[in-house]
Simulated scan of single mutants.
Amino acid sequence: VAEGKTFLSGVKQRLLSYIFRKHWSEEADQIVRIQYLKRKFYFHFQDYIDLIMWKVSRSTDQHTSFFAVYNMETTEIITFYQNSTEELYDLFEQLYDHFHAASRNSLHANFISSHSNNIYAFEQLCTIKNNAGSLSQFVKKMATSLPYTCQSQSPSPYFDLSLFRYDEKLISATDRLRHSTEHPIKFISRRQPHILKFKIKPGPETSGSDARSKRVSSFLFHPYLPLAISIQQTSFMQPTVVNIHFRR
Rank of each mutant, 00 (worst) to 15 (best):
I195S: 13
S209I: 15
P184T: 03
L107C: 10
L177P: 02
H183Q: 13
E182W: 09
R178L: 02
Q151L: 15
S180H: 06
Y166L: 03
Q137V: 10
E168N: 15
D160Y: 13
R212C: 07
P202R: 00
I195Y: 11
E205C: 12
R212L: 11
K199Q: 14
L196C: 08
S134G: 05
P184H: 08
S189F: 04
F111L: 07
S152E: 11
N105C: 12
F122P: 00
F122G: 06
K169L: 10
S106I: 04
S213L: 12
S152H: 07
G208A: 10
K141C: 12
L163P: 03
P193W: 07
S162A: 13
K214N: 09
R212T: 06
K129Y: 05
S180C: 12
K214L: 12
S145V: 03
S145F: 09
S136V: 14
S162W: 06
R165K: 12
L170K: 13
K197M: 15
T149E: 09
S207K: 15
Q137E: 15
L161F: 02
F138K: 00
A173I: 04
R191W: 04
A143G: 01
N118A: 00
K186V: 13
K169Q: 13
C126R: 13
P202Y: 03
R190D: 06
G208E: 14
L177D: 03
P193S: 13
L125M: 07
Q153K: 13
F122C: 08
N105G: 06
I188F: 15
Y148T: 00
Y120K: 03
K214C: 03
S172I: 01
I200Q: 04
I119E: 02
F138D: 00
S189N: 09
K129C: 01
S136D: 07
T181V: 07
G133C: 02
S114I: 00
F164D: 03
A109S: 14
F164M: 05
I128Q: 15
Q153C: 11
N110V: 03
A109Y: 06
I185E: 13
P157L: 04
A211G: 11
L135D: 12
P155C: 05
N117W: 00
P193A: 12
L146A: 05
E123T: 04
S113M: 02
S213P: 00
H194Y: 14
Q137Y: 14
P202G: 00
S162F: 05
I185G: 06
S134K: 06
K214D: 11
A173F: 07
T127H: 15
S136T: 11
I119L: 07
E205V: 08
K197Q: 10
T174I: 06
T144F: 09
H115P: 02
E182C: 10
K141S: 11
Y158V: 11
I200D: 01
F159I: 04
E168H: 11
Y120N: 04
D160T: 02
S114E: 00
T144G: 04
S207V: 09
Q153H: 14
S189E: 04
K199G: 10
C150M: 14
N131R: 11
T181Y: 07
S189L: 03
G203M: 08
H179I: 10
S213K: 05
F187P: 08
H194T: 13
T149Q: 12
L107A: 10
G203W: 10
L177K: 05
A211V: 15
